[in-house]
Design a protein around this nucleic acid. Structure first.
Length: 333
DNA sequence: AAAACGAGCAACCGCAGGGCC
DNA sequence: AGGCCCTGCGGTTGCTCGTTT
């Protein structure tokens, strides 16, 4: 299946995005939702390929993205998940709300990998990468420990799933379980029709992201910015959030089998990632457990464990991932 | 003060998979 | 059934900025 390169046409701009381009892209997605990327360059007049537009949206402009320092807990999660899943960054990102796969990948490649290598080299025993140990362990021992962990986790998942499915009558929507997070109604995009529908808000927008780019833009082009800023109103933000909500809506409507007591999952999810410790100060509206692309309930983001048709019970994962977090403290994570 | 170096990060590239016709 | 198109993912590149020499 040969495929013509998507970005090799003349006149297709490459390189860093300008604030103006960001505004155009965001405005378009507000209106149409994040879909049909092929049409985006044509409809917006952006001299960018569709891929570039999608990437810019998912990695930077998308609401709910948290940037900057990774917390200790996030770091531990990444280390554990990388040990479990390998370099499947999208799957790992599914367990780290607000973080993009690109972000996690960069963090791993530029920081964590080196840190772990250093730790490994520092301890001549060559023990422990991500998997907890309370005493020095050889690499072979560590690998066996990891395999055992994975087997145990899988078994536990299967057991938990059977009990979960039995009690899956409470298929409350994520939106419902979190509707208290925002008193506003907002426009949702139906995942099938891509038409806006009004529902209670289940995924609040990240005005922060847009505000940030506007801020930067104003710095550069004050005149133009004031005009565009007025165009991107709070309503627009809500609208934008709704556009993104297509993801989560798709989850709740098309993944019936996944709706194993989503309230419970949501709560467990909260506890798993210790949201209270995360920084939402810049975005009070954001609902962490509902990050559209970073949600573990999303199809393509699910770990391989689901390959057997098993949904991930987070309480078990939580236990498994964090049960020896205390030991890692000793290693300086 | 300036050049060299390194780290961090945004963006690009190419492949794979799935859906549609 | 097979080809085409679109999207998602992971690896890689290259730019920017801070630090060191």
């Amino acid at each position: 299946m040969g495929r013509p390169p998507c970005c090799d046409k003349e006149g297709v701009k490459k390189g860093p995005w300008t604030p103006e381009e960001d505004i155009i892209l965001v405005s378009y997605i507000q209106e149409h939702g994040p879909s049909n990327w092929k049409a985006v360059p044509a409809n917006t007049g952006l001299s960018r390929c569709s891929k570039s537009c999608r990437l810019r949206w998912t990695n930077y402009l998308r609401p709910g993205i948290k940037r900057g320092n990774f917390t200790d807990q996030e770091e531990k999660m990444i280390i554990h998940l990388q040990a479990l899943l390998g370099n499947r960054w999208a799957a790992i990102a599914a367990y780290l709300p607000q973080r993009t796969d690109n972000d996690i990948k960069n963090y791993w490649n530029t920081y964590l990998k080196k840190k772990l290598n250093k730790l490994e080299a520092g301890s001549d025993q060559g023990h422990n990468i991500g998997v907890s140990v309370s005493q020095p362990m050889s690499r072979g021992q560590w690998e066996r420990r990891l395999q055992t962990d994975i087997r145990m986790a899988k078994r536990a998942l299967i057991e938990a799933l059977s009990s979960n499915k039995a009690s899956s009558s409470s298929t409350l929507l994520l939106a419902e379980s979190n509707s208290n997070l925002s008193s506003e109604n907002s426009i949702f995009y139906n995942s099938n029709t891509n038409k806006p529908t009004t529902q209670s808000m289940c995924y609040a927008s990240s005005a922060d992201n847009i505000a940030r780019l506007l801020k930067g833009w104003m710095k550069n082009t004050p005149k133009l910015a004031s005009c565009a800023a007025s165009a991107v109103t709070q309503n627009s933000f809500n609208n934008l959030a709704g556009a993104d909500t297509a993801f989560s809506e798709g989850i709740t409507t098309t993944k019936g089998s996944t709706s194993t007591s989503t309230v419970e999952l949501s709560e467990t999810f909260d506890s798993l990632f210790g949201y209270e410790s995360l920084d939402y100060s810049s975005n009070s509206e954001f609902s962490p457990s509902l990050s559209p692309e970073a949600t573990p309930f999303q199809d393509e983001s699910k770990p391989d464990i689901t390959a057997d048709g098993i949904d991930m019970p987070f309480s078990l994962l939580e236990k498994w991932l964090l049960d020896d977090a205390a030991c890692q403290e000793k290693l300086g994570f």
